[in-house]
């Protein structure tokens, strides 16, 4: 009892400290009023504008031109520590058009069955994570390509930043990008959790006393009004070198801000795509377009399903021998 209590109190202190540290670190910028930051953004980052929802005529046009495809991937791991685990990946490209069958693809990875065992570096967690990211990214790009081949949609909403695909699926991504450009299919990525620091870096440049390595996420919290969008100037955007244009927007009542990337050659569509994302996002939500949420829900491999798959299709002997960690045997 006493032991538990002492841990609690210790933890409590640590959390309090973290809170204090964050408060201290950001005091400079948080004490500025909202207009200060908005002015700064207007001046250095890009125009703040207010979006209008797309009306139904517009949406009907998209429907007529092939609908919108949402792409997402999911992964789940079963087993214990390296190399005794198996990872499954699933990608889904789902069109808003009911008669177009959703494109599912799956992949599987286990260090037990690859060259990785020979390569001591593979044991490294970083390498493992990268491997996982690559497989996930690949499968998403593959389903997107397949859905283009089958359905020729008007536009594709990828779940997450487009940079990710550059990093993890270089060649495949280049192919998708090329196909989209050739066929005129608009390709955008919707970023639920923005991880850039465009504004923070600029702040540092302009006001050296505000140099605190702040990220856009916390800086933009509550700064935009519902329905407002920032078109990031290409010259400040970190993504420009990858030939993407980006925006930040507040797409729901929640004060968090989401991002959206579009390939540069399709920059002309950035406004309508932003408005599409805005239109598809429920007012009282976390800011994610409902379509991507639906796709996410459908592609997700839950623990139960994972377990069911393993138990059904794997010999019990193999399953127990390789993939049931001690942790799972605890009661």
């Amino acid at each position: 009892m006493i032991l538990i209590y002492s841990i609690h109190s210790d933890l409590k202190e640590k959390i309090k400290d973290l809170n204090q540290m964050l408060q201290d670190k950001y005091r400079g910028i948080f004490s500025k009023d909202r207009e200060f930051l908005r002015d700064f953004i207007r001046q250095y980052i890009g125009q703040i504008e207010t979006m209008k929802r797309l009306d139904n005529r517009h949406l009907a046009l998209y429907e007529a031109k092939g609908g919108i495809v949402g792409v997402d991937g999911s992964t789940n791991t079963k087993g214990g520590a390296f190399p005794h685990f198996v990872q499954v990946f699933q990608g889904l490209a789902k069109s808003t058009l009911k008669d177009q069958e959703p494109v599912f693809m799956a992949d599987i990875y286990s260090p037990l069955f690859s060259d990785s065992l020979k390569n001591p570096l593979e044991k490294d967690e970083k390498v493992q994570t990268e491997k996982k990211n690559r497989l996930l990214s690949d499968i998403e790009v593959k389903v997107a390509l397949e859905s283009i081949k089958r359905h020729k949609p008007y536009g594709i909403l990828m779940d997450g930043s487009l940079i990710r695909y550059n990093i993890y699926s270089g060649d495949l991504w280049a192919e998708l990008r090329q196909v989209c450009e050739e066929e005129g299919i608009i390709l955008v990525g919707v970023i639920k959790d923005i991880k850039t620091s465009t504004i923070g870096d600029m702040l540092e440049e302009v006001y050296p006393d505000l140099s605190i390595n702040a990220y856009d996420r916390e800086l933009l919290f509550g700064i935009l009004d519902y329905g407002e969008i920032i078109y990031i100037k290409d010259e400040v955007s970190k993504k420009y070198e990858y030939e993407y244009s980006s925006v930040f927007m507040r797409s729901s009542i929640a004060p968090t801000v989401i991002g959206m990337d579009i390939i540069d050659s399709q920059k002309g569509h950035i406004e309508e795509m932003s408005r599409l994302v805005y239109t598809l996002t429920p007012e009282n939500s976390r800011g994610v377009p409902l379509w991507l949420d639906l796709v996410d829900k459908e592609v997700k491999i839950s623990d139960t399903i994972m377990e069911g798959l393993m138990e059904k299709y794997m010999d019990r002997d193999i399953y127990e021998r390789f993939f049931i960690p001690e942790r799972a045997r605890r009661n």
């Binding site: 949406l59 609908g67 379509w291």
Partner: peptide
């Protein structure tokens, strides 16, 4: 409509319907 805890309003459903879903 409590996808991931969000409450989904009708206008979005309507928009999706126009998009064919």
């Amino acid at each position: 409509l409590n996808i991931a805890g969000d409450f989904v309003d009708n206008s979005v459903i309507e928009s999706l319907r126009t998009l064919g879903y």
